[in-house]
Simulated assay, not measured.
Amino acid sequence: MALNFPNPSRSYDASRHCVCFWGYDNAREIAFAINDSVISSLGSETGQDESAVLAAFDRHRERILSLARNVYMGGPQNRYTIS
C-alpha cells in the first residue's frame, strides 16, 4: 500500500458538498472525497462557497492526506469518502 499524492489537483463538488482529490498506488488512481463538514472541523473558519472550501482544504492538505492514508485499504476499491 504505497499510496502517494503527486498531483495537487482538487475540485469542489457542490452537489455532494465535498472536495475531490486523487492519490496513486503504483499506477492505480484512487479517488477521494472529503465532506465539507470534515474540512470545517479541522480548526478554521470555512465559508460556504467553493473558493472558501478549497482554501480551507489547501490550508489543511497534509492533515487531509493523512486521513486519506488512514482510510485507504488497498485492494480493488478505488473510491473513498472521508466523512
Rank of each mutant, 00 (worst) to 15 (best):
S66K: 08
Q77H: 13
S37I: 08
D36S: 03
P8W: 01
I34P: 10
A68H: 07
D25N: 14
Q77G: 09
V19E: 01
P76M: 11
Y12T: 00
I34V: 13
L67V: 09
Y72M: 09
Q77A: 14
Y72T: 05
N7K: 14
D49R: 11
A31S: 13
N35Q: 15
V19L: 06
N4M: 01
A52H: 10
Y72V: 02
R63S: 07
F57M: 04
I34W: 11
Y80P: 04
V53I: 15
N70F: 01
R16Y: 01
N7M: 10
R63L: 06
A55S: 14
I30N: 07
G23A: 02
F57V: 04
A14I: 03
E62F: 01
A33Q: 14
F57K: 12
C18E: 13
E62D: 15
D36K: 14
L54H: 05
L3V: 09
A52V: 01
H60Q: 11
D58W: 00
S66N: 05
H17A: 14
R16L: 05
A31M: 06
A56W: 10
I34H: 04
H17D: 09
E62V: 11
E45G: 01
I39G: 02
N7T: 08
R16P: 00
N4D: 14
R61Q: 11
H17K: 11
G74N: 09
S66F: 03
S11E: 15
P8G: 12
L3E: 01
P6M: 09
D25R: 10
E29S: 08
G23C: 14
V53Q: 08
S9K: 10
Y80L: 08
S9C: 08
R10T: 06
V71Y: 03
R16S: 05
S9W: 09
R79F: 07
D13Q: 08
S9D: 12
Q77T: 15
F5Q: 01
Y72I: 04
T46Y: 00
F32R: 07
I64G: 07
L67C: 05
I64D: 05
N35M: 13
H60I: 04
E50R: 15
P76W: 14
N26Q: 05
D25Q: 11
N4V: 08
V38L: 05
D13L: 08
V38H: 09
N4C: 00
G75M: 08
G23M: 09
E29W: 02
I34L: 12
N78K: 07
S15K: 14
S11V: 15
V71F: 02
A52E: 14
S41E: 10
F21L: 12
D13W: 01
A52S: 15
L54I: 10
V71D: 02
D36V: 06
Q48A: 04
N35G: 02
Y12C: 02
P8A: 12
Y12I: 10
A27Y: 05
R63F: 06
Y72E: 03
Q48G: 08
N26G: 13
D58M: 04
S41P: 05
F57Q: 07
D58T: 13
D49S: 03
L42Q: 03
R59F: 02
N70K: 12
R69W: 00
Y80D: 09
L67A: 07
I39K: 05
A68W: 04
P8C: 10
R16G: 00
S40P: 00
S51I: 12
A56E: 04
E50C: 04
D36I: 00
I82M: 12
